[in-house]
Structure formats: C-alpha cells, structure tokens
Nucleic acid binder design. Sequence first.
DNA 1: ACAGAAGTACGACGGCCGTCAAACTTCGAC
DNA 2: GTCGAAGTTTGACGGCCGTCGTACTTCTGT
Lengths: 102, 102
Amino acid sequence: MDRMGRAPAHPDVERFDLQRVLEALVDPVRRSIITQLARSAEDIKCGDFDIPVSKSTATHHFTVLREAGLIRQHYVGTARLNTLRRAEMDEAFPGLLDAITP
Amino acid sequence: MDRMGRAPAHPDVERFDLQRVLEALVDPVRRSIITQLARSAEDIKCGDFDIPVSKSTATHHFTVLREAGLIRQHYVGTARLNTLRRAEMDEAFPGLLDAITP
DNA sequence: ACAGAAGTACGACGGCCGTCAAACTTCGAC
DNA sequence: GTCGAAGTTTGACGGCCGTCGTACTTCTGT
C-alpha cells in the first residue's frame, strides 16, 4: 500500500541548505557519485556506479545526496535512475559544483 | 627552546587537498570563522571571533583551518592573527570560497 | 620579578556517521 | 506464478571528531 517509498521526496530549490549540501559532499564516495554523474550525459543506475561499498551503504549515500538536493531519483522498472540537479544547484550555490568536480 | 610552536607550518598551494578543505569547511563553527574573515578587511585575533566554543576548542578549529590551507596565522605579541588565504584558495579551487560564503 | 592575558597541549567523553550483513520488497522475464 | 535482479530497511558495530576542563607556556605591562 505504501507506494510513497517508490517516489521519494526531493527538496525544492528554495529549501536547499548549504550545511546539508556540504555534509553530503564531504564524503569521498558521495563526491565520486557526483563526479561520475557530472561526466555522464545520461542518467546512471544505482548499481552502475563505480564505488567501493556494499549495496546497502550505496543506498544510504544516494539517500543523503537526494535529501540534500544534489540528485534526482526516479524508477524505471526495478532500476533507480539518478540525475544530477546541476541547474538547481548552480542556482542555489553558484560555482560550488564546478569547484568540487575534478 | 622549541620555538617552532610559534611559527606553525602552512601548506603550500600546490599541496592543497580538496578532501581536507571540505572537511574543514563542513563544520559550522569553522565556516563561521571563514565568513568573518571574508567580511573583514583586516586580520582577526583568535580571541576576537564570535564563536560559541571554548578557547581550547577554538584552537582546534584554527589548527584544522590552517592545515587545510584556508588561513594563515602569525603571532604579534601574545596574540595570534588570522588571515584568509583567499588568493591561494581561489587559485586551487576557483569559486569554492565564494560559493560557501553567505 | 610578578601577575595576567592569550593561546596551546593533553586527556577524556559522547555522539554521530560510514559500514556491513541479513531479511525484505518490488518489479520484470520466462 | 516463480525466480532472479535491483534496491531498501533494519540493527549493530567501530571509529572519528567536536567538545570541554585543566594544566601549561609565552609574552606584556607594571
């Protein structure tokens, strides 16, 4: 019955919080996810990222990134696709993504 | 004899490390220190910052900021003056300081 | 020389966060 | 409708980090 779990909440741009964003970006695994998204033209499935952690830990990292507003997630079948919210991040914190993306 | 404690090591620009810088900037107290420095035209004494922590904790925060390369410290009498290393930070990570300074 | 101001050093403590394994859910394919 | 693939949830564990008080050092002023 609880189908909400499949369409998780994404914060609105006006509610982006610098503290939350930095807490998300300070973790190397999460920053690696952001970098891989920034380099890619298309969305990336959770399982297709190159990160050295277990599935459950990966889920945790995606949750942190989503709740900070850095990524958008939507389901396609059983796969969860991830998109970088670049435009909105650039609007909220201009220059930040560029500064931390190698 | 050990006078080195009074002229602590500052990292060179080429050795700035993004991970270290973000770990320094993620703490609200440290970011507040950076903001106060960014707003001020002159250097600021350790004891003159408006931060809600004890002296020993403050020392810890200044150490973290200095070792990340964000500030430069030098003694004048018993006071320790702090300078924002803005130019060098801008060179190493363009846009970062502006993005996190409200 | 002494007192006090300005920081530092050193433990100690508490909480948070990244990590994992195991059990579970949801969807697609056959 | 069963099975496997893809993620999620939950609980537990370990380590790190921010915090503080206390004791110490260094310099200034008197």
